[in-house]
């Protein structure tokens, strides 16, 4: 499935990360899972940003999902969660573009005090919906008739050398996802139960009993 699930813009403090704005598309999950899935995506986005150095792009694999992350030099960060089939290049193009727009609207000085409720940045929802179809959304991907585009792909893949990371590799030594989940304050008891069940059945969000 070619799908984008969540897009969030975060600010990376020295110790933690705060979400400045986020958009979700969880329609494809079954109804009672949606709340937990959202919580999880927020949680994972934060976790990854906290563990990514600035000026670094990467695409991190977690189960059926791919988390594309970029932390800029000024510590503004964005995470796009998609599935494996979504073209990475388009994902990173989108991230860069939206971060630029966000920074244009809110100057760097405000980031530290900004909170998710205060931020007014509705475009993020529009982008999430529009980029569901990578072909139509991004003029850059239309390379059928234009072979010069190959260069862009090649360049971009060499830049994004740190691909195919798994979440385990991103976590710091001695950390493990199960523990992080059970310690987390941001996750409800319901979401933790979902997580446990999903781990047991060994697939991220399907709940075959």
């Amino acid at each position: 499935m070619v799908k984008l699930y969540a897009f969030s813009i975060l600010y990376k403090n020295p110790t933690s990360a705060t979400t400045l704005k986020a958009a979700y598309d969880v329609e494809s999950f079954s109804f009672f899972q949606r709340g937990s899935v959202k919580e999880f995506m927020t949680f994972i986005s934060k976790t990854i940003v906290e563990r990514t150095q600035s000026c670094f792009r990467q695409s991190v694999k977690e189960g059926d999902y791919m988390c594309h992350v970029f932390v800029r030099a000024d510590n503004l960060a964005a995470v796009l969660i998609s599935d494996h089939e979504y073209p990475r290049r388009v994902a990173h193009t989108l991230i860069t573009k939206v971060m630029d727009e966000f920074a244009a609207k809110y100057p760097q000085s405000t980031w530290e005090t900004l909170s998710e409720a205060m931020t007014d940045f509705a475009q993020i929802n529009v982008y999430l919906a529009k980029y569901q179809n990578p072909n139509e959304a991004d003029a850059l991907t239309k390379m059928q008739n234009d072979l010069d585009e190959t260069k862009i792909i090649l360049v971009s893949t060499s830049v994004l050398e740190a691909m195919h990371n798994t979440l385990e590799a991103v976590l710091k030594r001695g950390e493990n996802l199960d523990e992080l989940v059970s310690k987390s304050q941001g996750l409800s008891a319901q979401s933790k139960a979902f997580y446990k069940t999903a781990r047991k059945t060994n697939s991220c969000c399907s709940l075959a009993p």
Binding site: S30, F32, Q33, Q190, A193, F194, T197, L207, P209
Partner: peptide, 9 residues
């Protein structure tokens, strides 16, 4: 339209 099992211990 949907039926699912909600984890609850």
């Amino acid at each position: 339209k949907s039926f699912e099992i909600i984890p609850a211990e």
